[in-house]
Design a protein around this nucleic acid. Structure first.
Lengths: 216, 216, 216, 216
DNA sequence: AATGAATGAGAGTTCATTCAT
DNA sequence: TATGAATGAACTCTCATTCAT
């Protein structure tokens, strides 16, 4: 039946439309500023309809985050592929993540707002599981790069890839967080914060710390 | 006027009492869980009275954050004082901040919640200006340590102290952020997050990146 | 037309399937907890289809109530048949209704919830008319028993069978109502409510009041 | 301070005003039809204000019910006082309750709707406790009358006062229930229901069942 | 006949803030 | 200075019913 196929297409399209609207709002208002009402208005659907596509606000947010990260992964994967050594891959990954963040500056603001939302999320939902799997992919890309670097001699052998990957990722989050919350941040720190300067500086520091002794 | 003096004393005492209550609540409930009602109940004052001491919820939060940071600064200052070289001072400062965070894990959770609250805060308020100045103090301790390290040869000469201080601080925030939001974080990243392991690893990386060539 | 006959059979079967699902749900969730969604899910039909078989939720409820009462009538009829005198028949009927209620405790809860739903029901619908006719049957069984009792001398002659039948039925409803809402009831009345004790007591009282002078 | 006294008076007055509005609405719309919005509109207060006086909808309903019963108790008490024998007291009580019901026909409709509301109510609330105590008072008036009747010889000695009181009360509820839901009831029973006839008939039956042998 | 997406009014509850006293 | 009653917009989520296909 062509009907079923069309229905499926329409359903997907509408779902995407809702996500588009939610993304835009989440980006401009932050996690706590996201209102189901506003989403409904933006997609020109009734509030009730939203709940046909997403079980609740959290599920909608998880889906937004998943879509974000879904576009992000190929982006960093190709950057990593092009770099020769393991150390270069780390640098390439971080730079790619930085560029991506600059182009989608609100992704991290949103993710962080969600992170500190406080309430523990129902992590059994499918949407959330998907999101979680994607985060795992990013980490494993980092781990692979570190391992390759240890094999090809560009990265120190005395580090543990998994723990170091978490350290690299989390410290990077801090730096980027400041960048995306530039406004609030500049209200709070009495020093100029310029991502364009800060991120390369950070990447430099990370690479320097990873590089094997003679490799600089 | 003795009367005026007593009034002033009483006013300050009441202000502190409000802050005590707010701090306790902010620590147990998080930024988003803080209710003016609850604060009023806890200090046994009416809600209206709160607004005689603080212009609004944000001003109250700024004051809480200021008091937090006020206990934090002497803590790291003494740690820094005891370390000999500039590089050691950086290490000491980060370790001190880590210990402080472990003992007051909610400070950062609160600060971050506030940071990503989204809405721009009225930064002209006195409370906020005070808070801002304190953050500046922390940064300048970092800057001084970096500069001393450059003089005493423990830290690379080719870094810019201010920018590097911001980098060190922000990346550290990322790591600690993950630690204090361990629960939400472990829901989101499929990897074990252990501050006790992660922070030393991070400090190591920071120091390694700062150390002057032969200094390791 | 064999086709038309099959269609009719299918239609009836589907109608029954819907009623089965609705009955089960009404019994477990109560009148106010009955959701058209849930009924549709349970019969594996779409919500829209429900409306092809029942004009609205009320019509569906009327049909459920009708089916309930349809199983109830033969039950009490046979009980009444077996009793010799008119007075015995009344007692047998009430005891039968009590046993039936114990086995289907939700019937009355449902009927009462529906009764006190407040909104006036569209009583022109066919489903509702059918339901009404069944209630009439129960009453007429009572009336017949009363009349027979007057003839056979077991029941006082100075009562009016119809009015008395209504009195018997409605007072019985009150007693049973309390029993099936035992939980809510025990929250509200500070006295133990035990249908097993209360109903026989009530039946006794009813019979004593009906018995002709020397008949006890 | 006269101020405190006036405040207290105003508070009570406002509480009563809210109850007035809620009562009227509960009476016209039934328990399920009662909307907090509508109550707020009717008293010309904001919805939020309602929650300063009543913790939630249930507490408001309990308060309405308590006020109802508070006017009811003196009414039946004085009726009971005036009757000489125990049996007469029962009759007087039931007739009084009947008259009261006729004047406030919606009380029982409401109470019944609330009863079959299904959800279990938080019975720890003060409002609810008060309500419960009032119901207990009514029951104990019945019990006392029964006991007196047993002493003065007007009532059979072989009944248990508490159980019989519950039986009398619950069966009466059934009869009255039909009366107050006359509209829905007449839709459902194909027989004329006339409280003016039904209640005396019921009271007669109750009294006849209670009367000691020779007492008729 | 059957679908199932869409509706939309409406529910109860919360809470930072104001203001007359 | 202190009160606390009042506000009212905002919130997430529900569900009987409709209707184009």
């Amino acid at each position: 039946m062509a009907v079923a196929a069309r229905r499926e297409r329409e359903r997907t399209a509408r779902r995407e439309a809702i996500l588009d609207a939610a993304e835009e709002l989440v980006v401009s208002e932050g996690y706590h500023g996201l209102r189901m009402d506003a989403v409904a208005d933006a997609v020109e659907l009734s509030k009730g309809t939203l709940y046909l596509y997403f079980a609740n606000k959290d599920a909608l947010c998880a889906a937004v985050a998943t879509r974000f990260i879904d576009t992000f992964i190929p982006f960093i994967e190709s950057a990593v592929d092009e770099a020769p050594s393991g150390l270069d891959k780390i640098g390439a990954l971080l730079h790619a993540q930085y560029r991506f963040t600059q182009e989608n500056p609100q992704h991290f603001r949103f993710a962080l707002g969600w992170l500190s939302a406080g309430q523990t999320i129902d992590d059994s939902s499918e949407a959330f599981q998907t999101y979680r799997a994607r985060v795992g992919q990013v980490l494993s890309i980092l781990v692979s790069a570190l391992q390759q670097g240890q094999r090809d001699g560009s990265i120190r052998k005395d580090i543990d890839p998994l723990n170091q990957a978490v350290q690299i990722w989390t410290s990077f989050i801090g730096v980027v967080l400041v960048g995306v919350n530039r406004e609030s941040m500049e209200q709070r720190i009495p020093a100029p914060v310029d991502l364009g300067r800060l991120v390369p500086l950070h990447v430099d520091s990370v690479l320097r710390a990873l590089a094997s002794e003679g490799a600089s």
